[in-house]
Design a protein around this nucleic acid. Structure first.
Length: 502
RNA sequence: GCACAGAUAGCAAAGCCCGGUUACGCGAUGGACUGCAAAUCCAUUUUACAGGGGUUCGAAUCCCCUUCUGUGCUCCA
């Protein structure tokens, strides 16, 4: 069992090996902060968060760099519309990014370099490319010359240079480009635009160059993983290959190019023009952050995902079971501690004295965790892994509720279940909430929000109990409906009446 | 047009690289429990792999052809 990773460039899944033993240099293209983060961002950064987490769980030290493209046409336009400085727009949306990603339980990268902080490095790189005759200076800026390295064309997309040549070419006259396939390394500023001094006139970096400059700065000439959205393969990532490899002379720039699939909404591409565009914040009004995370992890990272209401509702149900199992185990452990049972044996190493049922289920849980690891090692198959976790989450309450198992073993199992869940569902998948939250899900009496309505609810429940005892079902149902209107749902379980707040 | 990806049971989605064994889940149906509902559990939903050829003892999996879908070729996670 060893990790295999799919590489977009070679189009194959292969054994994961890095330049430096035990260390992974991973660069993921970050956002252009001209508007609040949307669900596509959530999908992308959750996908790479999963990758980040699994690499670390597997014993690698990950050096994770993710940039912010904080100067760009769209930011300039947004700032102009608002009549504010471009940095104000960028900073606001970067703050939004951090906030929503924190909610989605995305772990922070090690560095978040910003374009505006690496302008000297960019200028240096552009100068080297000019010196090596891979770039040329024009009136409106500096352009990379595709003709200087045609063999690098189509590295990620398989497109042939001739085919693209045959495509649209009418834009050449509008700029200083010699060939419509050439791309900007440096753009000379128009009046009023933010700019930095350079040997080719005041201006700003072209879109692609920052990633080359940043990866060079943080990792050197070659590194292990470069990630981003599927759409970035062309031209962005191919442009990076041109710039970096032509500048350093080292090839390949990246060992594993990783691209996540896109988000569709109800079968259509999510876009502002279609009106089905969701920011993360909007989505979080309707769904818990971890439920959204669950939904997004319930697909392989390379597949497109179609977010539908049904998909999200399914995720809600699955996630609730996971949290319930966790909360249940936590509550039992707390109770056991109070009862002075700290010395419960550690499973599964300890003998399981009380019965075969428990022993067999423990074996099953161990197997599920192994299978989940195998799934993750197969190019981060989180859907498969999540299926294993869900199976476990269903098994755990069955064991905790089993009356054949004595108290000591139940307590021991509860501790084991907590570890089981935290190890994978928590640490690797990032799907477990805070302990207090989980415990309140299992035992609603622990939820502070209940205290406010407790007296009123219990009065009504008492009246309902009387009505039920008298088999006055109409009155009983009336009371239940009244409680439902207050946001309280009532369930008659074998252990008595349980009520929860929606 | 060119390029890349995909087409799997009612829905959704793994498996395909490394041919031979059940995916998992949701929904539905039946049952247990229940005043009803909810939840839970059990069972059924099973000769599913776009179509056609080929290779093979054996193909969802490998090869060829066809059809259809998505995405990229301009800013995009």
């Amino acid at each position: 069992m060893a990790l295999h990773v799919y590489d977009t460039r070679t189009r194959e899944k292969r054994l994961f090996e890095t330049a430096r033993t035990g260390e992974v240099d991973m660069y993921v293209c970050g956002i252009t902060p001209y508007s609040p983060s949307h669900l596509g961002h959530a999908r992308c950064y959750i996908a790479f968060d999963l990758i980040h987490r699994w690499l670390e769980a597997s014993g690698w030290t990950v050096n994770y760099v993710q940039n912010f493209t904080d100067i760009d046409d769209k930011i300039i336009n947004a700032a102009a519309e608002e009549g504010v400085d471009f940095l104000e727009v960028a900073n606001r949306n970067i703050a939004d990014y951090y906030e929503v990603m924190d909610e989605l339980n995305v772990l922070r990268a090690d560095h978040y370099p910003r374009v505006t902080e690496v302008v000297p490095e960019i200028i240096d790189m552009v100068q080297q490319l000019i010196d090596k005759e891979h770039a040329y200076v024009a009136e409106d800026g500096v352009w990379f010359s595709i003709a200087s390295a045609p063999e690098k064309y189509g590295m990620l997309t398989g497109q042939s240079i001739d085919a693209v040549k045959a495509g649209a070419g009418g834009r050449v006259e509008e700029s200083g480009k010699r060939d419509h396939k050439d791309f900007a390394l440096w753009k000379v500023a128009k009046p009023g635009e933010p700019s930095w001094p350079s040997p080719w006139g005041d201006g700003r970096p072209g879109w692609h160059i920052e990633c080359s400059a940043m990866s060079l700065k943080h990792f050197g000439e070659q590194f292990d993983i470069h990630g981003g959205g599927h759409d970035l393969r062309f031209p962005h990532h191919e442009a990076e290959i041109f710039q970096s490899e032509c500048c350093t002379g080292k090839t390949p720039l990246v060992q594993y190019w990783m691209h996540n699939g896109f988000v569709n909404i109800d079968g259509e591409k999510m876009s502002k023009s279609l009106g089905n565009f969701w920011t993360v914040r909007e989505a979080l009004k309707n769904y818990d952050a971890l439920v959204l995370r669950h939904a997004l992890l319930n697909a392989h990272y390379r597949s497109p995902i179609d977010l539908t209401e049904q998909l999200l509702e399914d995720a809600k149900g699955h996630h609730a079971k996971l949290v319930e199992a966790y909360g249940h185990a936590l509550v039992i452990t707390e109770q056991a501690k109070k009862a002075g049972m700290q010395e419960a044996p550690r499973l599964p190493q300890a003998d399981v004295a009380s019965n075969d049922f428990l022993a067999s289920k423990l074996g099953l849980l161990e197997k599920l965790l192994q299978d989940a690891a195998i799934a993750m090692d197969d190019d981060f198959n989180s859907r498969q892994a999540l299926a294993k976790v869900s199976n476990g989450a269903r098994l755990i309450p069955q064991i905790l509720n089993n009356e054949e198992i004595d108290e000591m073993d139940t307590a021991a199992f509860a501790m084991y279940a907590i570890d089981w869940l935290e190890e994978f569902a928590g640490t690797v998948l990032g799907l477990l909430p805070e302990k207090e939250v989980a415990m309140a899900v299992h035992d609603p009496s622990l939820d502070p929000a209940r205290q406010a309505v407790k007296d009123q609810v219990e009065q009504l429940l008492a009246r309902r109990a009387i009505a039920r005892a008298a088999k006055d079902w109409d009155s009983a149902d009336e009371i239940r409906d009244a409680l439902a209107a207050m946001g309280v749902s009532v369930k008659d379980t074998p252990d008595g009446v349980v009520w929860t707040l929606d």
